[in-house]
């Protein structure tokens, strides 16, 4: 019997923010498989201290905002981003990072990390449900190795404009990945510590697994 090789590389810790309902089991399991030690929690010490925070998001924009506020999620996300600590937001998690969302004629304020409005997709068939291609910019860390793969989307609303090409000190300019359903919309953003995907990497098979591994790997301390 060969002795198992004990990895000396520390396993990054990831907290999946636990609020509201929906399928978070897939996200937890997929992140574990990507090499992270995962907690499902909304306790401030878990949310603030983890190497990475994942903000899942399923349902209506207004509901997600309300539920996030209930667990003080908005403040904790803001804290992490301000401190340069990694956050990955998924689906409606991406949407609430923009200025506001318009659903059923009601305008709801979002977190305003990025300018833009989340609006109903202009396509013959909505929701946009299924596997679509993405248009990845040069230099993406998140999509390294899966630039030409399809990812699983399920949403009716999206952001169709990007207007935040601001240079920040010690930070690469934001990288925006696009997809198309009727018209172009934002599929992912990589902006320093803050990353977000409109699709579900935890449901995107091998391509999604690679993307999550890329993100988890980015949480490891850089070797000197």
């Amino acid at each position: 019997m060969i002795a198992p090789v004990i990895s000396k590389v520390p396993q990054p810790t990831v907290t999946v923010l636990d609020y509201g309902s929906g399928n978070v089991r897939s996200a937890v399991r997929a992140l574990e498989r990507a090499g992270a030690a995962v907690l499902l929690s909304s306790r401030p010490e878990d949310v603030l201290n983890a190497d990475g925070l994942v903000v899942p998001g399923v349902g209506a924009f207004a509901t997600v905002m309300k539920e996030l506020k209930r667990v003080d999620g908005l403040r904790m996300i803001g804290r992490r981003v301000a401190g340069g600590r990694a956050v990955l937001a998924i689906c409606v998690g991406l949407q609430i990072l923009f200025d506001d969302g318009v659903e059923h004629g009601n305008r709801e304020p979002g977190m305003g990390e990025w300018p833009g409005t989340v609006e109903l997709l202009d396509a013959p068939v909505v929701p946009h449900m299924g596997w679509n291609t993405v248009d990845v910019p040069q230099g993406s860390t998140l999509f390294a190795g899966v630039e030409n793969e399809r990812f699983y989307f399920v949403h009716s609303y999206g952001v169709q404009k990007w207007d935040f090409d601001v240079a920040q000190p010690r930070m690469k300019p934001p990288l925006v990945t696009w997809s198309e359903h009727g018209s172009r919309f934002i599929a992912a953003v990589e902006n320093g510590p803050l990353c977000a995907t409109q699709f579900h990497p935890e449901k995107s098979g091998d391509a999604g697994a690679r993307l999550l591994r890329n993100w988890v790997d980015s949480l490891r301390p850089r070797s000197a």
Partner: peptide, 27 residues
């Protein structure tokens, strides 16, 4: 859901919010 990472739909016996909530929590 813990092993296969593609979308999963479950039908049969769904009566209301309670069953849907349980299914989603299972993955």
């Amino acid at each position: 859901a813990g092993e296969v990472f593609i979308p999963l739909t479950v039908g049969g016996g769904v009566r209301g919010v309670g069953e849907v909530d349980k299914l989603l929590r299972c993955g």
